[in-house]
Write a protein that binds this DNA or RNA. Structure first.
Lengths: 204, 204
DNA sequence: AGTCACAGTGTACGTTCGTACGCTCCAGGG
DNA sequence: CCCTGGAGCGTACGAACGTACACTGTGACT
């Protein structure tokens, strides 16, 4: 019986099942058999569609990166001005850290792989690059980089903290990093968009 | 032969070997046998000293947390004033992100576990708590939290970036988050140590 | 209708795994 | 000197693993 003839979504279903499994059980507990069982495909399909575990994982995380980049695009791309960008960043931090346990865990798994293996670092580079493109529409490059790192740190700490910090703290941190009145940051080359002191600091 | 009779460091050696193996190969490739081989102990020792993989991993990461907390203590504890604290934070970010691949990878592995399992979150709580204690000697609690998150984000992004940012950017980000002149942050309860506008912003 | 190429599958093989458990051998008391 | 309790080890067992490969059934083509 060659039932797969009629199902062109086999590959995608396998990749989704892989990500689900990783999110729930961790990369250490992933196996061809468990993925196959979860995806509802025979074991033989695994080696038919993917040359091995390696390729499977890389494609799965590629798929995840596409997803998370889309989330960033949707959130940050909609911001029309600097202040909306700040709000969008705060929204992003809070939605990532309190909804979507799945995305959070998968992000960590990806970073863990990326910390050790350059092949996976390509995926994180693309992710960072895309998010900086959005941020640089509203802030100078140095600020964008700092803000990008801040998003990462705030999201992670909020997700792991015993008592997650409230939105006011997120908003304040963002305001501080993106407000460059007092001095400096002027020679840091705000090429496309000069940084003016934000009108409202909007702390708490 | 009961050679272990004379070696009281068996346990510690096993734990160190576990961390080394995780750092090099990832948690997915850890097994009793591989750990035993690396530690130079017989397989039987594994189940003798530890009830199972679970206990082994938890103790290993407990040991790692002790180590990393000691690093934070050494770096941040030495700072005498606010400005030294800022420098110490910058040093910390850069030493974690460019030396000690091992610590970086293990940190990610720990976070990955913590994101999924509360038991490991205890370890990260302790770590965060200790680092905030240091930061709160020089900054108000809200600033300390923001700075703590910023350290995390800067370290990770610097470690994973294709072209790691230079020290000036780290220093600037720290300055921005810890300088609260223009307004606000005054009602956010700087209990032990009121936040005055830093004398020099010390950007680049 | 008959044939064929090949997408897709079931199964078997060799390896590695965690763990249990009977055995060894030493330190200390008699 | 002998005896003995228990710390520590070697090994064996069943389960699970990744992967290769012979096979099956179907749609397309003549």
């Amino acid at each position: 019986m060659a039932t797969g003839h009629t199902d062109p979504h086999r590959r995608e279903r396998i990749l989704d099942a892989t990500l689900d499994l990783i999110a729930e059980e961790g990369i250490a507990r992933v196996s061809h058999r468990r993925i196959a069982a979860r995806a509802g495909v025979p074991l033989g399909s695994m080696t038919y569609h993917f040359s091995g575990m390696e390729e499977l994982l890389r494609e799965a995380f590629g798929r995840f990166t596409d997803h998370i980049v889309a989330v960033f695009d949707a959130r940050l791309g909609a911001a029309a001005d600097r202040d909306q960008a700040r709000t969008a960043v705060a929204d992003l931090v809070h939605s990532l850290s309190e909804e979507s346990q799945r995305d959070l865990v998968l992000t960590q798994e990806l970073y863990t792989l990326a910390a050790r293996r350059p092949a996976y670092r390509e995926l994180t580079h693309e992710w960072m690059r895309r998010s900086r493109v959005h941020l640089e529409k509203h802030f100078d490059p140095a600020t964008a980089r700092q803000l990008d790192a801040l998003i990462e740190g705030l999201t992670l700490h909020r997700a792991l903290a015993r008592e997650p910090h409230d939105r006011a703290l997120t908003v304040e941190a963002i305001a501080r990093v993106t407000t460059t009145d007092h001095d400096a940051a002027t020679d840091r080359g705000a090429t496309t968009d000069r940084n003016t002191p934000g009108p409202d600091a909007g702390t708490s």
